[in-house]
Write a protein that binds this DNA or RNA. Structure first.
Lengths: 209, 209, 209, 209
DNA sequence: CATGAATGAGTCTTCATTCAT
DNA sequence: AATGAATGAAGACTCATTCAT
């Protein structure tokens, strides 16, 4: 599906507002107003508010899949290196596209719309399958444990990152870093998160005791 | 704040519906109807829909704090045992009160209402401080690492549990356990989650290499 | 179903406007405005615009059925007298409740809403059955023909009256009676229509050649 | 006014939809979509939705007038034969062009648009005048009654046919002819209607007692 | 000549809240 | 103390029409 500039403009505005206020908390009036377009354009372009949400998911998701798969298939890295890259990749993406990831959380917690939930699950399933391959490869090479619960592992990755992302302000306040510039703070967080999660994954994946 | 039976009835209905459909996706009409009370009662008792949400948070949170603090202060257990008990306590609570925890996620992801977000943060802060004591105690006794990022650790606990809770159906489908009875499935999940997170915490907290 | 004064007020306004402008040509805004009530009241009282239409039909129809049946069962009149009374009864009703009868025509010509059409047909069917009894009685007594197509007969009654009602202005203009007072004109029409249709029915029902 | 193929295509689609759903119940979008033309074409070709309706009336009416007048002026038939032919002609036309006749009923019942109503009345007036000549001729020849109300007579013709046309399904159900093929059913109806109305007209027009 | 894009006004309905009782 | 009736505001969406291309 090809998207015009105006459609992308609408989608990006919707993404921000859906993340900030939730789907039901955002009116098409608000979206249209902030995107600088006529209210009728949302229905005109996307059919409905729900279809707009679906278009938004598809648009963001479409760009993700290619990067993950190509990263996995690269033969220059060891399984453990690949896992680490995956972690960094996910953290980067989550921090950079915070609104989108917040929406993904919303979609899952409020499983009101089956179509949207299904779309979200499809993405998760595809990613899970790709990573399952990576795990198997590591197990075959003897560097990973034999018993690994893939879903829990991914839940820890996604859950920890999401939880951290959702409580950035809280973290700042708790550590007294209210004065640190945004960019510097985000860099710090990303670095710390990376180390933290890699430590966790090492414990889950490898036999080191 | 004293709550009458009817007020609790309303709050419990609201909790379920807010979790299922989100705050904005739930109408006062729905709550009143499902709680079997008059529509005007919500405003009459709580002032407004938002105030009802605040009352709901306060009500659930009030019962939590006592249990956590008393558990920590118990001298019969070692720091590592206490941490493990804390993990199980949290998993149990999250699985048992899923609606409430879903609401907590919603509140954090959609930081629309400052008053509500503030209330949620207060709880987190109090818990964090109590657990910080526990960590310090473990460090003093030499069983815990010196460098521990408390918030990330809690983010992993809360995030992993939430993410797992929000994707129970997905997990079921992925593992082909659609036919397992609900109760048995929940027990399995809780047990697996417990082992998983304890493994993670051991890696974060202790020096075992 | 009991109707409050305000509900009747709304229904009567709706009846007039639906007759004047058609169902789709009438907005709930218009109805509410002309009835002097809040816009939301239509949905509040009747659920929707369509339900309002159904309520309107039921309300008007409810008062009709009793009169027709009791008239038929009266033993003091001969079949031919009863038929004549039925004709006058119908003409009177149609002229007095013109808006309602116009709506009935609209409903039948634009069979968009199955529920409403069904309701209208139910009325017609019930009337047809009652009159069928009357015809049979006349045939048994030897005053009516043996071969009578009930539906066509009723179509002539209803169709002629409706067509006349719908073109009152045209009739006036054609006969140069633009200056006659409304009331006098209506009386003239009713009298002429009565003679006209009774002549028709005599030809259909009786053997007089 | 010359009409291109595309314009006729639009008009015919509009005719069908106006008949099925009413004028206000039909959107320009629907017409354009079902006619397979661009949405903007209706405004482009006809100026507006109302103008399209006027064009539709003019288009259909134009083809009618010639046939009626020529039939009347034919000297080979007696007045009574001419009346009978007129009845059959009208029945045929009504059954064949049901959509158009339904629209004519709609226009008259919902006299919202004066321009359209006026156009419809012009046709009726012209027909009435032609038939008035026929009646006078019959009266001069002594085969028709002296006192005949032309308008009521025409109202019976048009009203009976319209009412029958609008309730074809009801008639079918009432007489248990749901399984009869459409074409056969229409033929039966036309034949019965013809006999029915000719009986009526004989009673109105001639002295046979 | 024809049309895709765009729009302001309008549609019906639902919302949370208030108020008289 | 409790509630049924009522409402203004806002909800998402569709409308007929216009205009630049």
């Amino acid at each position: 599906m090809e998207l015009t500039d105006k459609q992308i403009q609408i989608i990006e505005t919707a993404e921000r507002l859906f993340a900030e206020r939730g789907f039901d908390g955002t009116s098409v009036r608000d979206i249209a107003h902030e995107a600088g377009v006529n209210i009728a354009m949302i229905s005109y372009y996307f059919g409905s508010k729900e279809k707009l949400m679906e278009a938004l998911l598809e648009w963001r998701v479409g760009s993700i899949k290619i990067r993950v798969e190509s990263l996995i298939q690269d033969d220059r890295y060891s399984p453990i290196e690949k896992v680490n890259m995956l972690i960094d990749e996910h953290i980067d993406r989550a921090m950079q596209k915070q609104p989108f990831h917040k929406i993904m959380v919303s979609v899952q917690v409020t499983n009101k719309n089956p179509a949207i939930l299904k779309a979200a699950n499809k993405v998760k399933l595809r990613n899970a399958k790709v990573i399952a391959e990576l795990i198997k490869d590591g197990q075959k090479k003897g560097v990973f444990k034999k018993k690994i619960d893939l879903i829990f592992m991914l839940n820890t990755l996604v859950g920890t990152v999401n939880q951290s992302m959702m409580s950035l302000d809280y973290y700042r306040e708790f550590n007294g870093q209210m004065d640190m510039p945004d960019e510097a703070f985000q860099l710090t967080i990303k670095r710390k998160l990376s180390i933290h999660i890699k430590t966790l994954f090492k414990a889950i994946l490898t036999n080191e005791s």
